[in-house]
Design a protein around this nucleic acid. Structure first.
Lengths: 122, 122
DNA sequence: TTTTATCTACGAAATATTTCGTATAAAAAA
DNA sequence: TTTTTTATACGAAATATTTCGTAGATAAAA
């Protein structure tokens, strides 16, 4: 299941803040862009229909939570992205990412360890 | 300039095959999915309007070419992707990419060299 | 020459995504 | 109790993207 751009923004909020009401999510989104309450509401309703979100209807304000993990979503999106933008070459993507963005020495170390692990595997 | 998914597919063909006619591009796309000739034509006309493609109108069949490089497009898309899907953490994306996809030992070596270079920089 | 094939241009339908207004209900405040 | 605020639901407008049909021009084949 590939979330749209707007849906991904909402998932990001829920992953970071945990289960939230529409108002909470909307206020978070409104920090970065102009977006009306009912717009966020509608999107979250659609996401709920799609199974992307769960919701508790106990209180008057429903509480929504992500029903897909950040990790698995990242994997799904990454796979598609590697295919469409990098012709399936993950290493090319990695080179680009390391070249353009700054990573801390600690992060670089982590990556190096991961390389070791991968190369050790039979 | 962010190409849409369909536009990116066309750019991929042009990057790989070099300057091509609409028919050539369409036949290439048709190998993977069901797509009509005029659909491809229209898309390429739009891309030309947007400045994504150049075209030679000398012959009856116009010859189109990518007007953006693969590298710069990859960088543009990657930056956005890191932000939206990985909250800006390039190293997280790298870990995911290395973890999920298989890279050849040679590619891993290249990545390692790049890490060396980056760490050596003052 | 007449017919057939192939090309561009372009409007518009089809589909996907995003945005918002309005109706209605319930809670909170006055 | 009456008014105001704050929810949800939902249709539909607005926008973006993709797809295709048709008209008209030109080249190729018959």
């Amino acid at each position: 299941m590939k979330p749209t751009d707007s849906e991904l923004e909402i998932l990001q909020v829920l992953w970071q803040e945990g289960p939230s009401t529409v108002r909470q999510v909307n206020e978070r989104l409104a920090q970065n862009k102009d977006v009306g309450y009912t717009t966020t509401l509608k999107l979250m309703q659609i996401m709920h229909e799609k199974g992307l979100l769960t919701r508790l209807e106990e209180a008057r304000s429903h509480v929504y939570a992500a029903n897909v993990s950040e990790e698995e979503t990242q994997s799904t999106l990454l796979e598609r992205f590697v295919d469409t933008a990098f012709r399936g070459s993950a290493s090319k993507l990695v080179m680009h990412a390391l070249g353009n963005h700054k990573a801390t020495p600690a992060e670089l170390d982590e990556i190096r360890k991961l390389l070791d692990q991968i190369e050790k595997q039979p």
